[in-house]
């Protein structure tokens, strides 16, 4: 079907159809190229660990490769791949939570990540965007995962409410209220930045 055209010109849905029907690995590779970075960004903001994030995105792509036939044409490919990545990221969080529950010496490490030490931040440095970005990322990790996920998808990844509702399998109303609560939590955690 689309072999006459350049594969890079095809839409996501056309590419996955090509991969499903003809098992064209090039189509798969193009989809991986398109989505590896957005998924990395999403998973990193959600989990907060670069190594774990790379593994999760790798696993997402493996699952995509193995379960390509479970994709249905009526859904958008982006929402389907985001759902896989989101589920794997949530599993990673559960695993970490469990690990922290039964681990004795992990608690100190976790606390060092969570606690902000503003005394070391000079006023000129606190304005520095790098520091600010790190503070935002730390605050983001303190927001409840159910709110964090939708805030990241909306405000960092820039997805529409409909796409988020499809990814999270929630109604649009629930998505909007969760986004609002997530933003409120985040703003409260970062009040020392936004009150100045």
């Amino acid at each position: 079907m689309a072999l006459n055209r350049n594969l890079t010109d095809l839409t996501d849905e056309e590419l996955i159809k090509e991969f499903q029907v003809s098992n064209t690995l090039d189509a798969y590779e193009i989809l991986v190229k398109r989505y590896k970075d957005p998924l990395m960004n999403f998973v990193f903001r959600f989990v907060g660990d670069r190594d774990a994030c790379t593994d999760i995105v790798q696993d997402t792509m493996i699952k995509f490769y193995l379960n390509k036939d479970s994709y249905r044409e009526f859904a958008k490919f982006s929402t389907w791949i985001y759902t896989i990545a989101g589920n794997l990221a949530k599993n990673e969080l559960k695993r970490r939570k469990r690990r922290n529950l039964f681990s004795i010496d992990n608690s100190d490490d976790e606390r060092s990540i969570q606690i902000e030490d503003k005394s070391f931040l000079a006023p000129d440095r606190s304005a520095d965007s790098e520091i600010k970005n790190e503070m935002i990322q730390r605050a983001l990790l303190r927001v409840k995962p159910v709110y964090r996920e939708v805030v990241i998808l909306r405000d960092i990844q820039g997805l529409s409410y409909e796409e988020i509702a499809e990814i999270t399998k929630l109604s649009i109303g629930t998505v909007k209220s969760r986004i609002n609560r997530g933003r409120t939590q985040l703003q409260k955690l970062l009040k020392h930045i936004y009150n100045e």
């Binding site: 970075d37 998924l39 990395m40 790379t54 600010k132």
Partner: peptide, 11 residues
């Protein structure tokens, strides 16, 4: 600020 967060790319 959330929009301007640096993008994290795959290795």
């Amino acid at each position: 600020d959330l929009k301007e967060l640096p993008r994290v790319n795959a290795p």
